[in-house]
Write a protein that binds this DNA or RNA. Structure first.
Length: 143
DNA sequence: TAGGCCATCTGGTCCT
DNA sequence: AGGACCAGATGGCCTA
């Protein structure tokens, strides 16, 4: 577990004003703050669990380094767009499904995306943009 | 050592 | 009243 801010304790008492309230009210406020902190920690842990699950289903070819949260979201977005395009194109060309899908699937394999095997671009943004080139305005997701 | 990423605390707002 | 959610602040860890 990550270390926490030394100046902030679980008591949550730093910002409270003990002198302006009765001890009972102060204790109640402290207890509430502790409970709120615990809930917030739990909520964030749930969020991080969700991010981990997303990382597992999103392409991470050749990546030994874990994607950041931002990169994970960007990659998920691009991945969904790519899959959506495959389905849209398959429908449009009325291709024999299996053969068409296999061909399209091959296109998103690592060997066909050499840029994905490296993580040397200056920013994650560049990395994401080099991974998939789909744009919002070009490929609307029809729900 | 600076910058990126992250966990945690905290106060505010909205909802039940 | 209390819980969920959010955003800002802060400090720790890691890497180039």
């Amino acid at each position: 577990m990550k270390s926490r801010r030394p100046s902030c304790t679980d008591s949550g008492s730093e910002s409270s004003e003990p002198d302006s309230k009765s001890p009972e009210k102060y204790e109640t406020a402290t207890r509430r703050r502790m409970a709120a902190n615990a809930r917030e920690r739990k909520r964030m842990q749930g969020l991080n669990t969700a991010f981990d699950r997303l990382r597992k289903v999103v392409p991470q070819w050749g990546q030994d380094k874990k994607l950041s949260k931002y990169e994970t979201l960007q990659m998920a977005l691009s991945y969904i767009m790519a899959l959506n395009r495959i389905l849209t194109d398959a429908r449009r060309h009325n291709a024999p499904h299996r053969q068409w899908l296999e061909m399209q699937f091959d296109c998103v394999q690592p060997e066909n995306y050499p840029c994905l095997m490296r993580y040397d671009s200056p920013t994650g943004q560049d990395y994401i943009h080099s991974s998939f080139s789909y744009q919002f305005d070009e490929h609307q997701v029809n729900v």
